Structures are given as C-alpha cells and as structure tokens.
Simulated scan of single mutants.
Amino acid sequence: MYVICGEALFDLFGEAGAEDGVTFDARIGGSPFNVAMGLARLGETAGFFGGISNDALGVKLVDKFRKEGVLDDYILRTDYLTTLSLVQKDANGHPAYTFYGANAADRMVTTEDLPVFREPPFFLHIGSYTALVDPIAGALKALIERERRNTLISFDPNIRPTVEPDMALWRRNTEGLAPLADVIKVSDEDLALIAPDEPIADIARRWLSSGTALVIVTRGGEGASAYSAGFETTCPGIKVKVEDTVGAGDTFQAALLSGMKKLKVTDRKSLAELEEQRVGRLLEFAMQAAAITCSRRGADLPVIAELEKEWAALI
C-alpha cells in the first residue's frame, strides 16, 4: 500500500462573468490528493493521511476518495474549514495559485493525530505546502522518522509562493527533508524559485550525497531528467495540445511511484540497483501519463487503460 500525506482542497477556476462578477468552476484538488487518486486510477492500493473538514466541501472530498477507491482509513476529520485555492492561468496554461487556508483542516494536524499503520506502507509520500507549514509539517516529519526504517520515502517540494513567499524558508525546509527521502521529484520551476543561481545537476548531486537514491527533475514540455549515484539520464518531452497543466506534476508523481512497483523496487537495495535503461522507461511512462492530464481541464488523471502500451514497456 502507498500512503500519501498532505492536503486535500478545492481549486476555484475563475472566469470573468457578467458586469463585475466572476464565475468559479470548483474542482477537487491538492497535490497529495491528486497523487493518491492517480495511484488508485493506475490500479494501486493507496491510502490518504491528512486533515479533511466536516464541512460540505470536506464531505465531497471524502466521497470522491471513496468513489476513486482511495482508502480513507487514515483520514483525520475535523471541524476546521476546507482550504480554497484560486487558480489563474497564463497564456500557456500554466497555473498560479492563491490559497485561502489559514487554520484550515489540512494544516491543523499534529503529532497526536499520526496514524498507526497495520503494516508498513510500500511508499510514504509527502509534499507541497503541508510539508512546510506547521503544525502538520512537524507531524509529517515525525511520521517519516518513525516509519523510514521499514518504508521508502518519496518527497515532492511543490513550492507554493502564495502560501509562503519566503523562498529561503522553502529552501531550508527542502534541504532539511532531502536527506530523509529516498526519491525526490521536483520541477525545474520549483528549483528556480528556491535556488535560482545553482545549476540543477549540482542540486541533484548534493541531495544524492546526503542520502537520496533517485532525484527526478521535471522540465515541463522539455521532458525530465533522472539523477542517481551511477548515472544521469534525460528523456525528451511529449508533444500534446495543452488544455492546462493543473495536476500534471501530480500525475507524473503517481505514475513514477506506480512504475517503481512494476519495476520491482521493493526496498532501498532494489532502488539503488535500478539501471539507467529502466529509469529511462520509467520517465517515459510518467511523462505519457502527465501528457494525458495536460490535454484535459483540471486534474483529470489517466486510468491504467489509457497507458497500456507504456505500462507493458516498463518490464
């Protein structure tokens, strides 16, 4: 089982309405929410740990998880409100987010709320702003320290300047979590925010030297690169008519984690033994999954039937 930790919220896509009004199209979202849903759509057993409100929007979030087949055993229901994220797109479909979530359910999780797993998860994944903002950030760090002896750790920094504009804080937090993570997936845009003057390869090598086994850097339409102790490899992007890029990184993340299971990565030893060719196929699979999401509005992640050819090629 995969356990995905973090936020679940609603994205509000705004369109100019009549006169001075704005019409919103509300869609379920949140990076960890999307990753959990993406794994379930790829046929994996995935559970979610995070705070979800008892309000009307929280009810919809839990109902969606159940509909998608994501296990709700570890969801923490509270009376705090659901976070809202206002999404505005540029001319290329790239989203910018404004969050309304101070003291919301997804942030108000403490170490006292940590779940007890019936068996160690295959992967424990954390990321986005819930890995930075307290109290949940401290709780997730405690969870990693408790579980990492028997569980692989995945981390996606997923920088959100509108949650916390201090990039130095984001960088310190990312650098502090990197040694605890076995796999880091990060976008070149995120690295440009927290380390604008440092070459990407140098950042990846530093994380590898600190204990990370595999660093994946996504580059939007330009593809993705993988760094490990034994090799560096890059796969070109996939051409697609972009509706928007909301959820593309989360789709890549879900496909990456699912693909590792397909490649029989079961522990740190097998992760360290992944060869360049197999990692290249893994990147291709994850990029194809992300391309499908980019062709649709919002975080509408693909199901495994849409990726049969790429899934078979992973072996």
Rank of each mutant, 00 (worst) to 15 (best):
K60E: 04
A289Q: 13
R172K: 08
T45A: 07
G51I: 00
D188E: 12
G230E: 14
Y80V: 00
A168Q: 11
Y129A: 05
E243A: 15
I144G: 07
L191E: 06
A229F: 02
S270I: 01
E145V: 07
V279N: 05
P157Q: 05
V163S: 00
M37V: 15
A8L: 03
L257A: 11
D11H: 06
G259A: 01
R268L: 04
K264H: 13
S209C: 07
A137T: 05
T110I: 04
I159W: 07
L274C: 05
A226G: 03
R296L: 15
L57G: 02
K309V: 12
L263P: 01
A36N: 09
F24Q: 10
V35L: 04
F117I: 11
A254I: 06
G221Y: 04
C235D: 09
V186Y: 13
F123E: 09
E310R: 10
D90A: 04
F123H: 12
F49D: 14
L140H: 11
D72A: 14
E310P: 11
D156W: 01
L169W: 00
L84V: 06
T234V: 11
L263D: 06
F13P: 08
A178E: 02
N103H: 15
V265D: 12
E189P: 12
A299D: 12
A178F: 09
R268A: 03
A255N: 03
S209L: 12
M1H: 09
R41L: 15
K264G: 02
E112V: 11
A36E: 04
M167S: 08
T83Q: 11
F10D: 11
A213F: 11
D156F: 01
V303T: 14
I292V: 13
S31I: 05
I216F: 10
R107K: 12
T151L: 05
L307Y: 10
L86G: 03
A131L: 02
K241W: 07
D63Q: 11
T110H: 07
C294F: 02
E164V: 11
L263F: 08
P135E: 06
V186S: 13
A16K: 09
V215C: 10
K185Y: 00
I292S: 08
F123D: 12
E275K: 04
V246D: 02
G21N: 15
R278Y: 01
A56Y: 05
R146N: 07
E44Y: 03
S270M: 11
A181E: 09
G69H: 03
A272S: 12
G38Y: 00
A224R: 08
V87C: 09
A137K: 00
K309C: 07
L71H: 07
R205A: 06
R297W: 14
M287W: 04
T218F: 06
A105N: 14
P161N: 08
S31W: 03
A291N: 10
D55F: 15
A195Q: 13
A213R: 14
M260N: 03
D202V: 12
F285W: 00
L84Q: 00
G298M: 05
V186H: 13
A192I: 02
S31V: 01
G247F: 08
A290D: 06
